[in-house]
Amino acid sequence: MEFDQLIIGLAGVIATASPIVFAVLGETLTERAGVINLSVNGMILLTAMSGFAVAATTGSVLLGFAAGMLIGALVGAVVAFTSITLRQSQVAIGFVLALMTRDLAYYLGSPFTGQNGPRVPPAPIPLLSDIPVVGPLFFDHDLVVYLSFILIAVTYLWLFRTAPGLVLQGVGERPASAYVRGVDVNRQRYFYTILGGALVGLAGPAYSLSIKAGWQGTISGLDGIGWIALAITIFGGWNPLRAATGAYFFALLQWLSLVLQPVLTGIPSQVLQVAPFPLMILTLLLVNFGSTEWVRRRLSALPEDQRRAVNALIRRLNVSPPSALGTNFRKQ
């Protein structure tokens, strides 16, 4: 019985991670192209609200997801236009949009607060869902969760195994070289900022039509998730597989904080709930500190053999962002 509950809990972790998976995959693609879209938090709220509103009005869950993707793409387009064409700071524009789209969600969503609406029906996959352990974990969900599995694989293969994926890597790492080779850098950036926005736009409806069905305004419990998604994107080292792993890890921590609460009575529940955030900072610390000034200076003082060992360790931990991330590209 204990074991069954564990499986059910872990299946829940996989399901609740799926909106975060959409968001980190979208942000990974956008940042790979050299653009940072900081507005993810507001985008998730706005697309959750509009996805729910459209689905509740039309009765079609599919249209709800389409609306979410469309609005996500639109916000991506605004980020692309202001940062690429108008060369304004990507951080500034993203931050403003993060706040504005959040309030827009609360304002426009107020008539829909607490209403009943459709939700994505469960869709256990025949035969596969009957396999012990693996079945309930991976094949007894709804289409949203299966889509998140598919998109992880597609994004990974697209980025590392296809010609356009190679171009994308080049645009983020060496835009000037990509340009010399005939790539329209800014067009690529537009494309991936809009595509990434559309993927983030899946996250909102994934919440409001499946994982946390409904729209509850400010108490929907979705405020903050987008900021976490941004941190997970870095944690994932701009690699779709690692980013998805980060999303599952985060969902696992949140679940553990709920489950362990009655066991660890000495620790207040608020401390457990917030545990993922210090861990996230710690992870960023681990992957980044090797490249800081003072560590470099210390290292150069070490004897040769020790230095080599430490360097190797740091290199294993280190993830480096796309070199051109956050910068504008101008043709000379």
Partner: peptide, 26 residues
């Protein structure tokens, strides 16, 4: 965290915001 850990202030700041809020609630 930024100087000695190489952690971008945007992300450490966001994390610390959450920690501060839950400290209040606790």
């Amino acid at each position: 965290l930024k100087i000695y850990g190489g952690v971008n202030e945007i992300f450490s700041g966001l994390g610390l915001n959450f920690v501060a809020t839950s400290a209040t609630i606790w």
